[in-house]
Amino acid sequence: MRPRIPFLLKKDLRVTRVFWIPACFSFGAFLLVFFENSWAFLACGIGLTVVLAAFPMAIDDHYRTDALFAGLPGSRSSLVAGRYLSWGLAALFGLVLFLAAAACLLLTFKSRTVHLAPLLSAKGALAFLAGSSLAGLAFLPSYFRFGFWKGLAVFAGGSLGLAVVLSFLAPILAPSPGGAATTSGPLSATIGAFRWLAGRANHILRNPLFFALTAFGLVILILVSFRLSLAFYERRDL
């Protein structure tokens, strides 16, 4: 029996093919709106990649084709693995679009977009991939447990909740945004705290040991997410 996962990947590429060009245009258009701020630019790129990666699942949900693929030769585990690989592929495709958009903006607007230059680096690419992968690792178990729309709602609700909690925690964890808080208000304090935390993370990850530990943590996260998805999907009636 031939391995089934490549066919599932090919299927995702085939069914999304008609949307590739519109996706490229929307990517460019949205990133053009957010290029003034490198953080917003990065977040927008990750958000668009999540949309791109979730697209095959939305199509399968719309046409109810999950039952068809569950009936074809293969197992549920290959369906789950196919989704993870498809997400990874979409993250890489999103990264290419993101870097291309950043490079185009830098070449076109030069001094106005100089703050985007650090994103065009291995570190920028890693940050982008980490963000889009973490989103996938959180979304996919929810998708396999609840289906597409309910899963998306749970994922969005969870992400929002986490963002709110982090917004409260960040100023507490950061030692010196207090000045900003008193002069520019709590929002600036939170943003300042996030920047400080990101700077600290950047500093810590320069240490090869911490980098290796973070990479190991990511691998554990992938395994946990995959096992959860598999457990949910094995039990699900399609």
């Binding site: 085939r14 008609v18 046409y63 084709t65 068809l68 009936g71 293969g74």
Partner: peptide, 30 residues
Amino acid sequence: ESAAKARVGFVLDEPPFYGYLKAPGMASII
């Protein structure tokens, strides 16, 4: 499961196909 399903052809009560594809496109996926 895989070997067993390879021996089965099936038609579900609501055929689940991608509506925007044509018959050869659908076959190329299956």
